[in-house]
């Protein structure tokens, strides 16, 4: 299976307003896919379709199909809880829970019923290591997660997602609230993570998309304008609108 996610004829409405228009896109396994486009074009909305977080918005209605591992996640009786453990999410603003660092990472596994202390410890440590945070926090696992810096908090949120052993990690502008050094660390981390996970990342920065992604999708006003290998998008875009955007003529 080359494509872990297949989005087919996706249309999404907030009440009357159509936020996504007939999106078709295949997400490759173990690749970083970047979503770019001016704000309000529907990148976050699209991302939230993939782990069904849009279910929580009452006025949101969705048409079309999204296949995760060849199963339509919008079919009736689909196990959404299970989907969210397999398709993790990292938010724009770091949102650690007001608990200890350890409890933050152990939270997801605990919700899945893992109680054994030893097992939880293993999960927490390996997740923190994968998120390149372990060395910095190993002496203060019982300290509040809120005592960490913004960049550390975001890596903690990544560790929290990794603890679920997901296959896909969705990231919605994960570095937009961070300073350049913290941003760099996250970008390095993403490069490391793509060996094991499929990553879909929304980004405001085209440099970031160019640096870290394999494929790039360009959205404009709810439409997918162009989807291609990242170097193609940034060197020889096929659409005029894409070229206008990446050369900074609008957006």
């Amino acid at each position: 299976m080359k494509n872990i996610l297949k989005i087919m004829n996706l249309n999404l409405y907030y009440d009357e307003f159509q936020a996504l228009k007939d999106i078709n896109i295949d997400i490759e396994n173990n690749k970083v896919t970047a979503l770019i486009g001016p704000s309000g074009c529907g990148k976050s909305t699209f991302l939230k379709c993939l782990n069904r977080m849009n279910d929580l918005i009452e006025i949101c209605s969705i048409f079309g199909e999204i296949e995760y591992k060849e199963e339509n996640i919008y079919k009736p009786n689909y196990d959404v809880i299970n989907l969210r453990t397999k398709v993790g999410m990292v938010f724009q603003k770091p949102n650690p829970f007001p608990m200890s660092i350890f409890d933050n990472v152990a939270y997801g596994p605990r919700c899945q019923g893992i109680k054994e202390k030893k097992r939880l410890e293993e999960i927490v440590i390996s997740s923190l290591k994968s998120a390149a945070l372990y060395e910095e926090v190993k002496d203060r696992m019982k300290k509040s997660a809120l005592s960490l810096s913004g960049g550390q908090q975001q890596r903690l949120c990544i560790a929290r997602a990794i603890a679920m052993e997901p296959e896909v990690i969705l990231m919605d502008e994960p570095t937009s609230s961070l300073d350049p050094i913290a941003t760099l660390r996250i970008e390095e981390l993403i490069n490391e993570l793509k060996k094991k996970y499929t990553i879909i990342i929304v980004t405001h920065s085209m440099q970031q998309a160019a640096r870290i992604s394999d494929n790039t999708a360009f959205f404009l006003m709810g439409e997918l304008i162009e989807f291609n290998k990242t170097d193609k998008i940034f060197t020889t875009p096929l659409q005029q609108k894409t070229e206008d955007y990446i050369t900074g003529r609008f957006g």
Partner: peptide, 14 residues
């Protein structure tokens, strides 16, 4: 914060 609630739900918590 709503963000904390969403963070939990996105981890597959009920």
């Amino acid at each position: 914060g709503k963000d904390i609630e969403l963070g939990s739900l996105a981890l597959g918590a009920t």
